[in-house]
Amino acid sequence: MMNCKEASQLMSQELDRKLSWREAITLKLHVSLCDGCANARKQVNFIHQACKHAFELNEEKK
């Protein structure tokens, strides 16, 4: 079973590379059962979005 430490590494890596099918499913399963990791993942994704918004170039880029 994947633990929180491994899950938090993968939720960062999923922003940098395509996870394998197995990694993606295991992460999904873990996050669906773990509040802490579900929140951590939302926070990491929020930071990723914030970087896109930081200079307000995102809408114009499309």
């Binding site: 633990n3 929180c4 430490k5 491994e6 938090s8 509040d35 802490g36 990791c37 929140n39 951590a40 939302k42 926070q43 929020f46 979005q49 914030a50 918004h53």
Partner: peptide, 25 residues
């Protein structure tokens, strides 16, 4: 600091939900 020796979140470091984060933008 974040995880115990089983690799689970420590009680104090377990992430909480951020309320309405997108409004911060």
């Amino acid at each position: 600091v974040l995880f115990n020796h089983h690799g689970a979140w420590n009680l104090e470091t377990k992430p909480n939900a951020w309320s309405n984060p997108d409004a911060s933008f």
